[in-house]
Simulated assay, not measured.
Amino acid sequence: MIRLSIPLRQALARLSLPVLIAAAFGTMLLGKADALLAERARIALADALAPFYAAFAQPARAVRDGLEDLQQILVMREENARLREENERLRRWQAAALSLEAENAMLRRQLEFVPERAPAFYTARVVADGGGVYARAVLLSIPPEMQVRRGQIALDERGFAGRVTEVGSRSARVLLATDMNSRIPVTLEGSRVRAMLVGTNGARPRLQHWSEGTRPAEGERVVTSAEGVAFPAGLPVGVVRWTEGGVAEVELFARTERLDVVRLFDFGLGGILPPEAVARPEPRPRR
């Protein structure tokens, strides 16, 4: 390997800058002097680099399209969440409007009506499946200062969920409307026909014991009835759904399978559960 002396390397370094400047000016003068030659040189260079540009352009386009699709997906997810929240809010407003409409019609028929006082309520968190003798129940965690008593009604943000059956010093058990031991007197809001909502341990309890000659309509709203002073009237329960086998069931508003927080209302209807609210406990089916 040939090693250059230090003075020679310094001389070459000093000469490199003038040589590069001279080459640049020469290229410019050549382009001015022979424009056709310069154009052909640019075209030849472009032809030589075109395959590389094409090879790199396709992955770059794919990455750009992927980023745009990802951004669009994020926007759609945000829009979907917003629409879900808006739909939930509109559903609550619709339930409130329908309930107020039914109450207004009743008030027109009873001009001497005296409104009831607003009920007190507590908010409690669901901590576990209630277990015990009931197949469909939840266990609530309650602080000692919370005045919870047997018979209080439990609702989630959508509607009726169940009723308190047992109370301890720091916990309470709520029997859900879907349990086979649950009996809830209800009213069909459209026809004002009274019936009994009976749990089946499934997702939808059944409608039973409605008046002869009447038939619950598909999609008709179901609310609680004040018959027997077991429940206050007008609490939203669900809508009627007919099965293929001709059985009237109720699709509950409350999400009984995914309860996180419930509100326990005290309507001042007495602290003991009447027979029509809870049937005799049946043993839990073996799995």
Rank of each mutant, 00 (worst) to 15 (best):
G202P: 00
E257I: 01
F121S: 15
E244F: 11
L269K: 10
P281N: 08
L4R: 10
I43F: 06
S99K: 10
E145W: 11
V278P: 01
P281C: 08
A33E: 04
A60C: 08
A23N: 09
L175R: 10
P205T: 10
A203S: 13
R9Y: 01
L37G: 10
R117V: 11
L252C: 08
L107S: 10
Y134T: 02
F253P: 01
A118G: 00
D69P: 00
R284S: 01
L235Y: 03
L252V: 06
R64V: 03
A48N: 05
L176F: 07
P143F: 06
Y122S: 09
A161C: 06
V19G: 06
A135W: 01
V114M: 11
V75R: 12
P18W: 01
P236K: 09
W210V: 03
F267M: 04
L17G: 05
P59Q: 08
F52P: 00
A62C: 03
I6Y: 07
R77A: 14
A279L: 14
Q94N: 15
L67K: 13
V198M: 05
G246C: 02
Q152F: 13
A57M: 10
L36F: 10
G228V: 11
P51T: 07
G213H: 08
I153N: 04
N80R: 14
Q71M: 09
P18D: 02
